[in-house]
Amino acid sequence: MKKNKKRRRWAKFAGIALLLLILGGGIYLFYFSQSLTSAVNQMHQPIERKVSDKREQAVTLEKKDPFSVLLLGVDKRENDSGRSDTIIVLTVNPNKNSIEMLSIPRDTRTVIAGKGTEDKINHAYAFGGVEMAMDTVEQFLDIPIDYYVQMNMEGFKEIIDSVGGITVNNDLDFTSGGVHFPKGSLTLNGEKALKYSRMRYEDPRGDFGRQMRQRQIIQGIIQEGASVSSLVSFDEIFTTLGNNIKTNLTFDQMVDLQKNYKGVQRHIEQNQIKGSGTKIDHIYYFLVPESERLSLHNRLKEHLEL
């Protein structure tokens, strides 16, 4: 019984911590002690980047401005800077009380900002880190990218376990990594969620199916954290989050998020980019028509009230 209570407490804590990083939650920060400050300092990784020229004024979270977040899931390998194999843009609007979530296929062919050459969009991170990834996505969608949250995909398992697992609605019966995922509602721990999110070869939708499962998991984490109303035990959980998440959001900005953006996680609209795959010089790329980019630009720009 005590063990179960302790696990539930950890789940509550981690859910709110992650929620604060992405879009804020419904709990007050005075529940958190010096451990929170220490963990947030560890997560905070500022970047040298000017305010986007796609905004007339910088975002002010204290004033409840709509904003955007680039969520990067990075797989790092030995002697390699890694690639952002998960690229999701969130636009958050407290006035409409909603979030738009857009997956960008990692093989999307686009101009890499700062290099002037066309390549796969996920190579931007490998070439120039978070800054180049943000600039490239901003250029691709023609909207400002205000903040980023970078997640270590291997540590993703620990984060999901810390919120007590997540529930997804699976629309495809498949087996991946020795785990069978039947159709219907599934509750997944961290290890199973990672396998669930990475499978694509057995999915007739290919990478589109994988992106959908990734969005399901992100949404599950957000909603799991949003349901929490109290925290008790937290030291080990903050260590996990601090080791696996980096963001340019400051502690004060997180405070503004939790005060001013409550409820936005209740309305999450998932979006998928339309396009087609082809090979250029024997390399596979995903090509997005200009009309599709313009449609996405208009949708997200309107959501950002620009």
Rank of each mutant, 00 (worst) to 15 (best):
M153D: 06
K50P: 09
L71T: 03
I99C: 13
Y147G: 03
A193P: 10
T110P: 04
I104K: 02
G116P: 05
A124T: 02
V51C: 07
A124F: 01
G114V: 05
A58V: 09
H180N: 15
S103I: 05
D146H: 09
D161T: 05
N169V: 11
K120V: 10
D85H: 07
Q139E: 15
I145K: 00
D53E: 12
E131Q: 11
R49A: 02
L102V: 09
I143T: 00
G190S: 08
L70I: 08
L188S: 12
R49E: 08
L90A: 14
R49I: 10
T175M: 14
R83Y: 02
S81I: 08
G116W: 06
E138H: 02
S176H: 15
E191L: 08
N189V: 12
A126L: 04
E100H: 15
N95M: 08
N189Y: 12
V179A: 10
V59N: 07
H180K: 15
V179R: 11
A193Y: 06
G184H: 08
R83N: 13
V111Y: 05
K54C: 02
V149M: 09
T167K: 12
T86E: 02
E100Y: 14
Y125A: 03
T187V: 13
A126K: 07
E154P: 03
S162I: 09
V137N: 02
V168L: 08
R109Q: 11
M151A: 13
N95C: 03
T60Q: 13
I104L: 15
K96I: 04
K63D: 14
E131I: 12
F181D: 07
E78R: 13
G177K: 12
D53L: 13
G82D: 10
D161K: 08
L188C: 13
T108N: 03
S185H: 07
L72Q: 03
K54L: 15
N93W: 03
H180Q: 13
V137D: 01
I87S: 01
I121K: 00
D85K: 05
E78L: 11
I88E: 02
K96F: 09
L188E: 12
F181K: 10
D85N: 06
E62H: 14
T91P: 04
R83V: 05
R55E: 07
A193C: 09
D107S: 14
I145R: 00
K183S: 04
P105M: 13
K96S: 13
E191Q: 06
F127Q: 04
L70G: 02
K63R: 15
R106Y: 04
K96M: 13
H180G: 12
R55H: 07
